[in-house]
């Protein structure tokens, strides 16, 4: 059929599979995302720390390089669960910043221009639409979290030998799980905000607010009531506990507070309060609750028609 033939005709070729149709949304969205120089720049910055981590791993196993650089080998950080947890914390922060730049227009742009009926009148369900948009975030964040994390892990394993790999194989699973939990949570929160707020800047602000305002609140609660349970309102602090748990580094005892209190009967009294982090299950429950709230918001907002009450 000629390109400019002006006739109406049905498509008679072989239609795409359901999976290919599903991947259309992420494919188009990814192409649009990297049109922004800011996003591309930020994406490149996200690879700085993995590069540093890879260099550290290399130095740890290269005696000649250590000798040339005149570094004491004992000063180099050990490559263990703690090393990879730090890697996750740093890359997790970069992943968050990347999400702030990438996610806000994903759904809001469709909502503000009433494009949802166009998507959903095609063989595409609401769930597939949201999953398609989520895949965009998941793909971008995977490239800066678990993929470089696993590459560094296998780089270390190849240099350290099978003994190290046998002792630390669980780290690979922890890297993947820690990244997956963070990616899913970020994607859900970002998509929910994008489905509620139609302006990109406001959506980015809301995303920052959701992480930083509760963080400040958590500190206030912790200091006022001499506790660590305030951390449960901060998603970042909660995720840190989840990561610590996944890398078997979680310790509920996070220090103590000492001081004096004036009592009218006994005069001055010393006190020593041991601060306990909330249990690990509570951190997981907070993450799950946040995710469920986002799913609920998405199920209310992503519709082909506007609900007017």
């Amino acid at each position: 059929m000629a390109v400019y033939e002006q006739l109406y005709g049905a498509y008679e070729g072989v239609p795409q599979s359901a999976l290919s149709r599903f991947l259309v949304i992420p494919r188009y969205a990814l192409r649009d995302i990297f049109k922004s120089k800011l996003v591309t720049g930020m994406f490149l910055v996200c690879f700085v720390y993995p590069l540093i981590a890879a260099i550290l791993v290399y130095l740890r196993h290269n005696v000649n390089a250590v000798a040339i650089l005149q570094i004491d080998i004992l000063e180099l950080i050990p490559i263990d669960g703690s090393f990879f947890r730090t890697f996750m914390q740093i890359q997790g922060a970069f992943a968050f910043l990347l999400t702030v730049l990438v996610a806000p227009p994903l759904i809001s742009r469709d909502l503000s221009n009433n494009a949802l009926p166009l998507y959903l009148s095609r063989p595409l369900s609401r769930t597939e639409y949201v999953l398609g948009k989520g895949t965009v975030i998941a793909a971008v964040l995977s490239l800066v979290t678990w993929i470089p994390g696993l590459l560094i892990f296998f780089f270390q394993a190849s240099l350290a030998g099978t003994g190290w790999l046998w002792r630390n194989y669980w780290i690979a699973g922890s890297i993947f799980l820690a990244s997956a939990v963070w990616i899913v949570l970020l994607a859900l929160i970002a998509l929910a905000i994008s489905a509620v707020v139609r302006w990109r800047v406001v959506a980015s602000g809301a995303m920052l607010g959701i992480f930083f305002v509760p963080g400040a609140m958590a500190e206030i609660i912790n200091n006022l009531f001499l506790t660590r349970y305030g951390s449960l309102v901060s998603l970042w602090a909660t995720m840190n506990n989840v990561w610590a748990g996944l890398f078997f580094l979680f310790d509920r005892n996070s220090g103590s507070v000492q001081g004096t209190v004036t009592n009218p009967i006994y005069d001055k009294q010393l006190f020593n309060i041991i601060l306990l982090e909330p249990p690990l299950w509570a951190a997981w429950a907070v993450v799950a609750a946040a995710g469920l709230i986002c799913v609920w918001i998405l199920s209310r907002r992503v519709r082909a028609y506007e609900v007017i009450k």
């Binding site: 498509y11 070729g13 072989v14 239609p15 795409q16 290919s20 149709r21 259309v24 949304i25 188009y28 166009l118 998507y119 095609r122 063989p123 595409l124």
Partner: peptide, 10 residues
């Protein structure tokens, strides 16, 4: 084109 692809056309 996006709409066509979503409808199943390669």
């Amino acid at each position: 084109r996006l709409m066509a692809e979503l409808s199943g056309i390669p």
